[in-house]
Nucleic acid binder design. Sequence first.
DNA 1: AGTTCATTTCGCTATTTCCCGAAACATCGT
DNA 2: ACGATGTTTCGGGAAATAGCGAAATGAACT
Lengths: 129, 129
Amino acid sequence: MNSDPLRPLVDTLKTLAHPVRLRILALLHAGELCVCEVAEVLGLAPSTVSEHLTGLRRTGLVREWKVGRWVHVALSDEAATRPLLEALWPLMAGAEAELARDRAQARALRCDTCTPSDCPPSRTPKEHA
Amino acid sequence: MNSDPLRPLVDTLKTLAHPVRLRILALLHAGELCVCEVAEVLGLAPSTVSEHLTGLRRTGLVREWKVGRWVHVALSDEAATRPLLEALWPLMAGAEAELARDRAQARALRCDTCTPSDCPPSRTPKEHA
DNA sequence: AGTTCATTTCGCTATTTCCCGAAACATCGT
DNA sequence: ACGATGTTTCGGGAAATAGCGAAATGAACT
């Protein structure tokens, strides 16, 4: 019945059309993170972030994989959504202040003696010593 | 308080994220139309189309102007939204059949002895004779 | 002035989206 | 096996969105 050929594109656009999800994409543009770090930076409940990420994954915008008990997230390298994302970055210029603050906060959370892929994220660098 | 710097971009994306509005944009990509023609092609109530167009105009995606008692609509030439639209056309390829049908129907409604700018749109060409 | 026709605004209902907390899962460490 | 921690799923309530018909508006033509 519902074979609307515009459906996939509309789904992608709907997924993009939310400030939190744009902030997540901008965060991931600077490097991968794990779900709890995203939740911390955005100040949202983990369940909320998980649901946003489900949408982003459904539309192929991000990919996720497990590392120990953490789920790491990064921008997908799928060709389909790339041009849209590339067109989007310049349009986020007006929010650069907020986005830079997000990135700085993510960097502060991240342990700096190891890469996100092979080490559990730590809330504070000293927890890792 | 609510000075979310991502707001304008989110508004634009929300406006794009609807099959009817995408079809309207694709229609206008082939040339300007008046509101009643858009309603006829899409098979929607004029009030519904009017509301969709209000959103498209609010976000600068289309422009409208009065011609007699008709309101003509065309894609806006604003620089801000252009790159987004340009990234969008290729992504609509999967719906080319439906979009081509829309365009054909619009062409059938349109009087072919005059341009849309200086002549009231007529339902059938012979009404114009 | 009154009529007609294109368009918009309004009132309404149905559906969807967003966010959370509680509970369920999953994985690691002890 | 147990507890701790990260994540997801579920249930629900507030808000936004989509569609229509009816009524209001504006412009043209008698």
